[in-house]
Amino acid sequence: MTQSVEKAVMRILAEQAFIDIADVSLDQSLVDLGIDSMGLVESIFAMEEAFDIAIPFNANAPEASSFDISSVATIVAVVKSLIAQKQDA
C-alpha cells in the first residue's frame, strides 16, 4: 500500500513533467523535474483526486503550509500523512 502511494505520486509528477516514471527519483525537486507553478497546482489537483485528500497549499505563501514541496520524497511523505489522517478520522 505504501509502495503504491509513492508510485502513484511519482506517476502524477512524471505525467506533469512529460517524462517517463523511470526518470523520476525521490530526491529530485520540482525544478529538477521541470514542473512550474501551473504544473504544481495541476499535480496537487491530481493527487487530491487520486487519494480523496485535501492538500493545504497556497501559491502565495508556499512555505507557510505543511505541504513541503522541496522534493518528490517530501511530497510523498505529506500525501501519506494526509491519507493516514483521513483514515484515522
Binding site: V41, I44, F57, N58, A59
Partner: peptide, 8 residues
C-alpha cells in the same frame, strides 16, 4: 480554489 491564489 484550485488555482491556489486565494487567501483564507
Amino acid at each position: 480554489e484550485g488555482l491556489r491564489v486565494m487567501s483564507k
